[in-house]
Design a protein around this nucleic acid. Structure first.
Lengths: 103, 103
DNA sequence: ACCGTACTACGAGATTCATCGAAATACGAT
DNA sequence: ATCGTATTTCGATGAATCTCGTAGTACGGT
């Protein structure tokens, strides 16, 4: 199950990077959508975000490098999943609080 | 209890602005310190942040306009307090999660 | 082998933002 | 009134970053 793309270990995740990653509207939207699935999403295929492919890559990388999502290749696609357990352990309540935000 | 400086009402607080406000190291440090007091702090006097006064003003304004802190004049000082109740109501767990973050 | 799809890498442009110093304002104390 | 402290405002500067298009890579299917 080794990731091809570099991910921070749980103890390498920094709260500042997480907050910065979540502070962008596009990325927050991605996280909200990921929170609705267990299996993860190919953001480029399954989400219509109104941005270019290269911009999406940038955002997903920001989320991945911050430790918010885990990205796994499946065929030509990249499946992103929320790192719920890691985030809930490090920052209990944070994710739920954000997801509870009124639309 | 009307504030002299403009503050967003609870229902005007946007999660994106809150996250953006919290995503800066200086501002996060301020919030952490404020979380340790009930009465609030004059950030300029009681915190040594290693930044200029004008930069501090900028950060406190960002926190205030995002709805993270309430700022009240007391003499020549400005006392900042965390808007705990508002934030906990809007985003239950978010603040605690952030404050629980390992150093 | 070829094609199409999904994504990434690499600049580049435009905007945002953190920072500062200097000047100005507000208030309390003398 | 004057002074000192705390803070704000303004303008500038440099860094970060959001965005894109183009070109390239990777993989599955025909």
């Amino acid at each position: 199950m080794t990731a091809v793309l570099p991910h921070p270990e749980r103890d390498e995740i920094r709260i500042e990077a997480v907050l910065h990653a979540l502070a962008d509207p596009v990325r927050l939207h991605i996280v909200r959508e990921l929170a609705r699935t267990e299996e993860g999403l190919s953001c480029g295929v399954q989400l219509d975000l109104g941005i270019s492919a290269s911009t999406l890559t940038h955002h997903v990388r920001t989320l991945r490098e911050a430790g918010v999502v885990r990205v796994q290749p499946r065929g030509t696609a990249r499946i992103s999943t929320l790192r719920r357990e890691d985030l809930d352990t490090l920052y209990p309540g944070l994710l739920n609080g954000i997801l509870a935000a009124p639309r």
